[in-house]
Computed example of a mutant assay.
Amino acid sequence: MTDTAPQTRGGFPDVRPVENAPPELGRFVAALHRLQDLTVSTNPGDSSWAAAAEHIESACALLDGHQVPETEVVAGRVLSVPGLAHPLMPPWTLTESGPDGVIMTGHFTRAHVGGNNAVHGGMIPLLYDWLFGMVVTSAGIRPTRTAYLHVDYRKITPIDEPLIARGGISNVDGRKVFISSTMTATDGTLLSEASGLMVRLLPHQP
């Protein structure tokens, strides 16, 4: 089956990167990442937890009331900020993209630890799913949904070390787009590899 109306998006919003993001957004997201790292690596005592909670609650109060539709949200759509300026994404950056594939560079931090200073196994598929989305977008295939994602873990993925992820389209069958990718250390050591299927949505599919 082939999409006969590729320009018709149905219920899927046309969300595109933001080029003119607020200049302080990167600073804000970096602070959130630091907060996540500290939350899982400190034990300051009850009074400090309470005081920190008050600061966070004050920050929430500043932002509350400014909610906008998905197509107007800034965080999560800024290519120039690590993790697209989304506080839950690992601080990686898209460095190369095109129809032949994409390359992303970055690292994982203390907030991503699963145990013994190794990256949690669930964080790695999150990175790959993001990479798969960038692969199909860079190839001009939009919108899509992830149908499956398979990860083979080859070695322990370290935190606080520079890493490289590469991905590209291995095959296209109608609306089915098959993707293969790898994550390596800077010396080329293979840490994990993933394969997946992205399916281009029909006009009526959200």
Rank of each mutant, 00 (worst) to 15 (best):
T4C: 05
T4H: 10
P6T: 06
T8A: 11
D14S: 06
V15C: 12
P17G: 10
E19I: 08
E19H: 12
N20G: 01
E24K: 04
L25N: 08
G26Q: 01
L32Q: 12
H33M: 06
T39A: 15
P44T: 06
G65M: 09
G65D: 10
H66I: 05
Q67Y: 12
E70P: 03
T71K: 13
V73F: 01
A75W: 13
V78G: 01
L79K: 08
S80H: 06
V81Q: 07
P82I: 00
G83W: 06
L84P: 02
L84R: 09
A85I: 01
A85N: 01
A85Q: 01
L88H: 12
L88Q: 12
W92K: 02
P99D: 02
P99Y: 00
G101C: 06
H107K: 14
T109N: 02
R110W: 05
R110L: 13
A111L: 02
V113T: 13
G115V: 01
G115S: 11
G121S: 11
I124F: 08
I124N: 07
D129Q: 02
G133P: 10
G133K: 08
V135G: 06
T144M: 02
R145V: 15
V151L: 07
D152F: 03
K155E: 15
K155G: 06
T157H: 00
I164K: 08
A165H: 00
R166L: 07
G167Y: 03
V172M: 12
K176Q: 05
V177F: 02
S181P: 04
T182R: 05
T184P: 03
T184M: 08
A185P: 11
T186E: 15
D187V: 04
L190P: 02
L191W: 06
L191Y: 00
L201Y: 01
